[in-house]
């Protein structure tokens, strides 16, 4: 469903991604962990070309989105993204946030867009907050609206860029619940996060990245119980505090 081939990204002299190969199968949940500055977010942002890869190919459902003749705006609606800082539009209600792209990109009539938007909000448990503005919602609610905004476009893949790290601990659970439901309904997901518990429980595969490379990859059990590389062990030791 999502395939990266030798993706490189440099910022000036700094090489953030040193040739990444990755295949995310349909309905798979792949988790990326690693220290900050390891290139995880850059990798995610290359998957919908918020960052232009310097080299390599990114295939979504067989279409190379890096190719110059692809309509990136048409492709992006198939690739949902959820941001660390939610990035809800403060001047629009929850429903307005969800329906903007439906109306402007999919050219849906207002009624139809509202209907689909309400269904998406219902899906994240916020049907009754449709008319609330972002500043009237808790962080967890805002992030769920952001998820609904992406889901309403019925994407083929969802990208999560540290979706819970801006949240107070007691609000993390509600967002993870939504992600768990998405996983159960068969969404293809690529997640950058520090929620190791969630990775262990829900991920099909875990990738450990460091310094712009995938150091090792495998089932959660293998990565967390018996990591092969010293760098992986060192990282896990630090984040789990053992």
């Amino acid at each position: 469903m999502l395939e990266l081939e030798a993706v490189r990204k440099s910022f000036g002299a700094i090489e953030a991604l040193k040739g990444i190969d990755l295949l995310v199968a349909r309905q798979e949940l792949v988790f990326i962990i690693g220290p900050s500055g390891s290139g995880k977010s850059t990798l995610l942002r290359c998957c919908n070309r918020l960052e232009e890869p310097t080299a390599g190919r990114v295939l979504v459902d067989g279409v190379d989105i890096v190719s110059p003749d692809v309509d990136i705006n048409e492709m992006r609606r198939h690739i949902g993204m959820v941001f660390q800082s939610f990035n809800l539009y403060p001047h629009l209600s929850a429903l307005g946030n969800v329906t903007l792209a439906l109306r402007r990109v999919l050219k849906m009539p207002r009624d139809e867009a509202n209907e689909r938007g309400r269904a998406a909000l219902d899906g994240v448990g916020l049907a009754e907050r449709a008319d609330a503005y972002p500043n009237e919602l808790s962080g967890g609610q805002q992030q769920r609206v952001a998820i609904a905004r992406a889901l309403a476009l019925e994407p083929k893949v969802m990208l999560f860029d540290e979706p819970t790290s801006a949240l107070d601990p007691e609000l993390v659970g509600s967002v993870l619940d939504v992600m768990r439901t998405m996983r159960e309904s068969g969404m293809t997901m690529l997640v950058v996060s520090h929620e190791m518990g969630f990775a262990r429980e829900a991920a099909d595969r875990v990738l450990f990245m460091d310094e712009g490379e995938v150091v090792e990859a495998g089932s959660p059990a293998r990565i967390f119980e018996s990591p092969e590389h010293a760098r992986t062990r060192e990282f896990l030791r630090r984040v789990t505090g053992h």
């Binding site: 919908n48 918020l50 705006n73 048409e74 492709m75 992006r76 609606r77 690739i79 949902g80 993204m81 941001f83 800082s85 990035n87 809800l88 539009y89 903007l100 792209a101 402007r104 990109v105 952001a146 905004r149 992406a150 476009l153």
Partner: peptide
């Protein structure tokens, strides 16, 4: 920047992002 990125990630083009977001 996050506002633009969120809008672009849902498929809005540059002008739509400017006008609506």
């Amino acid at each position: 920047r996050g506002q633009r990125e969120a809008a672009r990630s849902t498929g809005l083009n540059g002008i739509q992002t400017m006008v609506f977001v």
